[in-house]
Amino acid sequence: MFYYLDGTVAELLPYLAVIDCGGVGYACKTTNNTLSALKKGQRGRVYTYLNVGEDLFDLYGFATQNELNSFKQLIGVSGVGPKAALAILSIGTPETLAMAIVTGDEKSLTAAPGVGKKLAQRIILELKDKMSKDVSSGLDFSGGRGVPAPAMFASKATEAAQALAVLGYSSQEVSAALKGVDVEKLPLEEIIRQSLKKMVR
Rank of each mutant, 00 (worst) to 15 (best):
A85P: 03
S90D: 09
S142A: 10
A87D: 02
V18T: 13
K83Y: 01
G53Q: 04
G61W: 07
A151Q: 13
G79E: 15
F57I: 06
Q194G: 06
D20T: 07
D182E: 06
K72M: 13
P14R: 11
V77W: 11
A161W: 01
M152Y: 14
L167E: 05
L35E: 08
L89F: 08
L109W: 02
G116E: 09
A111G: 10
R201K: 15
K198F: 04
K117R: 15
G53E: 13
L89V: 04
L12T: 14
Q42M: 11
Q121A: 13
N69E: 13
I191R: 01
M99R: 04
L50N: 11
K185C: 05
L178P: 01
C21K: 01
M99L: 15
E106W: 01
Y4Q: 14
V166W: 05
R193D: 09
L56K: 14
G25H: 07
P150Q: 11
S70A: 15
S90T: 09
A151K: 15
A177S: 14
S36V: 07
M152K: 09
V166G: 05
A84P: 03
R201V: 13
V46Q: 08
L86M: 13
Y169G: 06
S70T: 07
G116L: 09
I88L: 08
D55V: 00
G146Y: 04
A84G: 05
V102G: 00
V115L: 09
I88Q: 04
A163Q: 02
K118C: 03
L89Y: 03
Q194P: 00
E184V: 10
G25I: 01
Q65C: 01
G25M: 06
Y60W: 12
L16W: 02
S108K: 15
L68V: 02
A84Q: 15
I192V: 11
M131T: 00
N69H: 14
T31C: 07
A98P: 00
